[in-house]
Design a protein around this nucleic acid. Structure first.
Lengths: 189, 189
DNA sequence: CGAGGCCTTGACCGCGGTCAATGCCCGTGG
DNA sequence: CCACGGGCATTGACCGCGGTCAAGGCCTCG
């Protein structure tokens, strides 16, 4: 499981054994059962997690309506990074869509790691840059893409998501009703 | 002008004189006239800029339709950060809405600075985190807010923008037609 | 076998986009 | 100083996309 994480990280930066040992020492394994919350909206996100197995859904709960904002799959990190860094309450829930195997770590330990090892500082920066770029692309999609285009892009760039995620959540993620997504799919079949 | 920048930075981190001198040495002043492009879509963003005076509009140009994605005002940084870090072409234009006084710097110099001074590495991380949090809030707004709510939030949190920016650009920024924004305003007057 | 969740399909309708006309403000030149 | 022109905001009329509500089918799981 930690090897899995190291493999992912080394796709981004080289880490030597000392650096790796330091990171490894701040990790704790955690299991979350399907349909349980990893993070509840209103709570502060004290831990970020590497997802070794399973996937999660991020969603806002607003007058018992769920609005999905994101999914995170294996080999990515999950949690509310905004809450994690600011200490303010999370605006959304993070729910296990399947049983999860996680490696979690908290902010004090992370900061310590980043202070001591430039390699980890760099990795953190890359990670946040990546988060930003993805959000910016999503912004562009909201401004520029029709519902149909959004769906087609998923079809080409995110088959994985379509295979694993119930359509009603995908619809919500795209800012559509389940019915509208269904009609788009009917047209393209 | 550099003092103005230092003041802004020291709201975020403490910098000593050596650190400051190092940063200052990579800055170059630049002026951009109203209505000129600071960055053209399709071009790589080689320089980021601190805006000392004036403000800019970020917009996509798609079949001679302009779709506005962002504004940046005095005392913030501007440019396509995604393009700046990845070296891929910018997806949008950055245009001067007023005459601009800028302090620009390029990526090689920035990386060098960040390597040598942990303080600047930290500042860069904070800055990117801030970019991310803002984009995430915008994402939430696209998913959750009605056109009316979007406008009201500007009214409470962004009076500055409403004062300075022509409404048609604000409409586009909110994902609305100018007519719809106008009608919302009529209702709330 | 029954129950519930998910997806689909149909009918309806309202929000917001589009097109067009008008008014207003402001800068420019006669 | 006034006349003109252009850009911006507003308003009205129209309409179509996509949301809502409701019903039906299908699959999974207890």
């Amino acid at each position: 499981m930690v090897e899995q994480l190291r493999t992912q990280i080394e796709k981004v930066i080289k880490v030597n054994d000392a650096e790796w040992a330091a990171f490894q020492s701040i990790l704790k394994p955690k299991q979350v059962k399907k349909n349980e919350l990893f993070l509840e909206q209103g709570q502060v996100c004290r831990h970020m997690a590497f997802i070794a197995k399973g996937y999660v859904r991020f969603y806002f709960l607003v007058e018992d309506e769920e609005v999905t904002k994101e999914f995170n799959f294996e080999n990515t990190f999950c949690g509310s990074y905004a809450s994690f860094i600011t200490g303010s309450p999370s605006r959304f829930n993070v729910k296990a869509m399947e049983d999860l195997s996680l490696l979690i770590f908290d902010r004090p330990h992370l900061l310590q790691l980043v202070e001591q090892y430039p390699a980890w500082a760099k990795f953190l920066l890359f990670s946040v840059e990546n988060l930003f770029v993805r959000k910016e692309n999503r912004e562009a999609s909201f401004l520029l893409d029709t519902p149909e285009e959004k769906y087609k892009k998923l079809l080409f760039e995110n088959k994985e998501m379509l295979r694993r995620v119930p359509l009603k959540y995908i619809a919500s993620y795209l800012g559509l009703s389940a019915e509208t997504l269904s009609r788009i799919r009917a047209k393209h079949k």
